[in-house]
Every structure is written in C-alpha cells, then in structure tokens.
C-alpha cells in the first residue's frame, strides 16, 4: 500500500497542478477506506459521506502546503479524523481512540489456569486457493471489521490496511504506541473469532 518517496513526491506535484488523473488515482485508492473509517467514528452513512467529501476538497486545497513530513495517506487521514472530530464535537460529543471499555473477547476462552477450554482449530478449509476464490470470505472479513468498536476499527484500517507507520497512526488518533498495539491485537482477535464462527458453522 505504501508508495516510495519519489513516486509520492511526483504524485503530490501532479495533484497540486489539479491533474485529474492523479486525483483519480489517489481518490480510488483511499476513498473507500476513508468512508469505513469515518463511519466507525460517526455511525451515520450520509454524514460520513459528507465529511469524506469535505476532506477531499480540503486535501486538494491544501496540497500545496503538504511538506512530506508524513506520508500522503497519513496526511489525508489526519484531515479526515480532524473533520470527523469537529463534527462530533459540534453535536456535543467526543471521539476518543483509547479503546477504554473495549473488550478483547478472548477472556472466556481460558480456564482458571490459563489453558484453552476448547482447542483452536487449524482452519484447514481456509487454504490460499479458497481465499482467492472465496469472495464470501472477504465479504465476511469486511463485515467483521465494520462491526469493531471505533478505536479498534480505526487502528486496523490505518495500520493493518493502509500500512501507515506506527508513529503516524498514533499521531492521527492521539494514542500511545502501546495502546495502538493493544487495539490492533484486539481488532484481530475479534475478526479471528468471527472467522472461526463462520468456518465452524459451515465447512466451505
């Protein structure tokens, strides 16, 4: 997902001249993730679409001031999160990404001595071939990500999908690196559980 520096510098320069092809490329690459991320914070599709659209306009207006101190994706997502934060504050609420009260969903899997109550399966039906063929697996994974609490979902999108550097993710969400790792771990645990339920329910 990450671009090398030279490519990114060229792309930013093209964006600054108002090049439609360059914008097309950046838009297609990030728009869907931005929308998923925003919906995780706002929980309203129409409002999220509006905020993402505003973000793109701010990106194009501000691209001349982009200095490459973060990645382009990191810069775009920072604008998005700031816009979502302001919108939520305007409604008298707050967004926090510390993940407080977000459970890891695994505590019940162990007995009092920390051993598995039920041994995890090998997921033998989930082979690489199946993954490529099985669009339904991908649909299921996306649905599991959408069901995550805000903080976990945000970290999974930024770190696990957009592949931003840890420092960028922490700065955008205003969390510590330790916190980010815990949230990423919990997010994976939830998606794992959901996949496990799917695979146990119907052998593919």
């Amino acid at each position: 997902m990450r671009m090398n520096m030279a490519d990114e510098t060229a792309l930013v320069a093209q964006l600054a001249t108002g090049d439609r092809a360059a914008f097309d490329c950046v838009y297609r690459k990030h728009n869907a993730s931005m929308l998923r991320m925003c919906e995780g914070m706002i929980r309203n599709r129409a409002t999220s679409e509006e905020i993402v659209q505003d973000t793109w306009i701010a990106v194009l207006k501000g691209i001349g001031g982009f200095e490459g101190r973060s990645s382009l994706a990191g810069w775009i997502f920072a604008i998005l999160v700031n816009k979502a934060r302001s919108r939520v504050q305007r409604d008298g609420r707050m967004i926090s990404f510390d993940g407080e009260g977000e459970d890891d969903g695994l505590a019940a899997a162990f007995d009092g001595r920390g051993r598995w109550k039920d041994m995890p399966d090998l997921w033998e039906t989930l082979t690489p071939d199946r993954i490529i063929e099985g669009r339904n697996i991908m649909v299921h994974v996306l649905a599991a990500i959408d069901a995550l609490p805000t903080a976990q979902r945000s970290v999974l999108i930024l770190r696990g999908q957009q592949d931003l550097e840890p420092a960028e993710v922490c700065s955008i969400l205003n969390i510590t690196e330790g916190n980010m790792r815990v949230l990423l771990h919990r997010a994976r645990l939830s998606v794992r559980k959901s996949l496990d339920t799917l695979l146990a329910g119907k052998r593919l």
Binding site: H30, A32, P120, G160, Q161, R192, L195
Partner: peptide
Amino acid sequence: GCDAFIRQMRTTRDLTAAVPVAD
C-alpha cells in the same frame, strides 16, 4: 492448540490486509 491459534492470527492479519479497499 496455541500453534493453531497463532496460525489463525496470521491468517486473520493477512486477510484483513488483503481485503480490497480500493475502488
């Protein structure tokens, strides 16, 4: 059990990174 669990977590990490996110 733990070996299987770690494999599951690897698969989960790879799948979440591989879901198509671009238009």
